[in-house]
């Protein structure tokens, strides 16, 4: 059984995006900070921003978009990315 997480964009934040080639910039209105995100973290944040808050659903949608299998390695990588996004103050991830 995998531990599920609930993810949301940090309260009171609006995210503003600018995408050039495979690099994504996101401006967080709550912190006033601009972040440079690689494609996969950007994909996760965008889906969370669009309301996909359940980590299982998020991971399944992400691997489908990337045409990958949700192996344990991929799952661990995606979980680590969520932790990093949480540490950056872009999302809040909590056990559900």
């Amino acid at each position: 059984m995998h531990s599920k997480q609930s993810c949301k964009i940090v309260p009171d934040a609006t995210l503003h995006w600018k995408i050039w080639d495979d690099q994504c910039l996101v401006f967080n209105s709550a912190s006033g900070q601009t972040h440079l995100l690689d494609p996969i973290p950007a994909l996760l944040v965008r889906q969370i921003d669009e309301g996909c808050g359940d980590s299982e659903e998020l991971f399944l949608r992400t691997v489908k978009l990337l045409d990958l299998d949700l192996t344990s390695h991929v799952r661990t990588t995606l979980q680590q990315i969520l932790q990093q996004l949480d540490a950056l103050g872009l999302i809040e991830a909590s056990r559900s």
Binding site: K18, Q23, L25, G32, T34
Partner: peptide, 21 residues
């Protein structure tokens, strides 16, 4: 890269954060 250029230029800005979004 444009994205890195924006961040680097923002580092040189005096009032980028004051302008917010």
């Amino acid at each position: 890269p444009k994205s890195t250029a924006l961040l680097r230029l923002a580092d040189h800005a005096f009032n980028y954060s004051q302008y917010g979004v």
